[in-house]
Simulated scan of single mutants.
Amino acid sequence: MMTVLYGIGTVVRFILRVVLLPVQAVLTLVMLAMAFIGSLACTLFEILGTLGVICGLYEFISSTGSATSGWQFLIGGILLVIIPQALIIWGEAGLLNLKDLLARI
C-alpha cells in the first residue's frame, strides 16, 4: 500500500513540476522586467531626490527661505531615493521566495 502511495505521489509531483515550469519562467521574466524598470525608476528618483536635497540646502543657506521648508525638501529628497529602492528590493526578494517555494514542490 505504501509503495502505491509513493508511486502516486511521485507521479503527482512530476506533473506539478511540469505544470509549474511555465510559472517559474514567467516569474523569472517578471523579475528581469522589474530589475530593468526599477533601475530606470531609481535613476529618475535619484535625480529628483538630489534636486530636493540641493533645494533643501539652498533653503537653509538663503536668508529668504524658512527652515521648515528646508527640512521638508531634505526629507522629501531622501525619501524620493529610499522608497523606490526599498520597493524594488522587497519585490525581488518576494519573487525569489515565491520561486524558491515553487521549486520545492
Rank of each mutant, 00 (worst) to 15 (best):
L21R: 13
N97F: 11
N97C: 12
A93D: 08
S63P: 01
E59M: 02
L44F: 05
V23K: 05
V81D: 11
F36G: 00
G9L: 14
T10E: 09
V30Q: 00
L79C: 14
S66W: 07
F14E: 11
L20I: 12
L40V: 11
S39G: 05
F14S: 12
I78L: 13
L57H: 02
V18W: 05
I54C: 04
F14P: 04
L29T: 14
L80M: 15
I37D: 01
L5Y: 10
G49P: 11
V53H: 04
L21A: 14
T28M: 09
I83K: 12
A33M: 13
E92K: 10
I88T: 05
V30N: 00
A41S: 07
P22G: 14
I8Q: 13
L74V: 15
A93R: 15
T50E: 00
Q85N: 05
Y6L: 12
L20N: 08
P84R: 06
C55F: 12
I82V: 12
W90G: 02
P22C: 11
I15Y: 07
G94S: 05
Q85M: 09
V19Y: 08
G65C: 13
G49C: 13
G91D: 06
T10V: 01
I88F: 04
V30I: 12
P22F: 09
I54E: 04
F45E: 06
R13T: 09
E59P: 01
V23I: 11
F73P: 06
G70P: 07
L44P: 01
